[in-house]
């Protein structure tokens, strides 16, 4: 796998731009340019795979998702045990960091949904902080509606997409 972005130059033409007017043109303006001749393609390399300790890939710590009800941004009581387990691991293993990704369903503005997903991530972060995880171990971010777990366009899909996910060092 390549470590650097592969840059393909599809078109080498360089946009030229000039305007002249003279007697040889019968008074009509002459305009010279090549719009859209110079877009260079950039390919973002695919991400590397993660290599995590077994404790994070099996058992309770392999459960990483917290689901939210419609228009709700607070952590439901049923996730208390799961978040307590993650907090315990992070307090005992201060070298580990986590990324909390908040998500929303697809309805509404992409950018506003990004902010709503952030509220879900912040709610999970706050719960973990109260359980003793240090602020510098946690980053709360949002993927908004951009990374749906379920691709459907009905309530059963939307319910799966109103979610926050926990990623550990190595996974982000």
């Amino acid at each position: 796998m390549k470590n650097f972005a592969v840059v393909l130059t599809l078109l080498l033409a360089i946009a030229a731009c000039s305007t002249t007017s003279g007697p040889e043109t019968g008074g009509a303006p002459v305009e010279t340019r090549d719009p859209n001749a110079g877009v260079t393609r950039v390919d973002v390399p695919p991400p590397n795979g993660a290599n995590l300790p077994a404790i994070l890939t099996s058992g309770v710590l392999a459960q990483r998702s917290i689901y939210f009800a419609l228009d709700r941004y607070d952590v439901a009581e049923e996730y208390r045990g799961l978040l307590t387990a993650h907090a315990k691991f992070l307090v005992e293993n201060r070298q580990f960091k986590i990324l909390i990704q908040g998500n929303t369903d697809e309805r509404g503005s992409h950018e506003y949904n990004l902010s709503l997903g952030q509220k879900r991530a912040e709610a999970v972060k706050q719960t973990l902080t109260l359980l003793g995880v240090r602020d510098d171990q946690i980053e709360a971010v949002s993927l908004g509606e951009e990374k749906p777990r379920a691709e459907g366009h009905d309530e059963s899909a939307w319910a799966q997409n109103r979610r926050a996910d926990i990623l550990y060092s190595g996974e982000f």
Partner: peptide, 18 residues
């Protein structure tokens, strides 16, 4: 905004040079 680093980051991209 690109999500290539698992979070939203803002880039400015020059079209001619990439």
């Amino acid at each position: 905004v690109s999500f290539e680093n698992k979070k939203p980051i803002i880039f400015v991209h020059s079209l001619a040079t990439g």
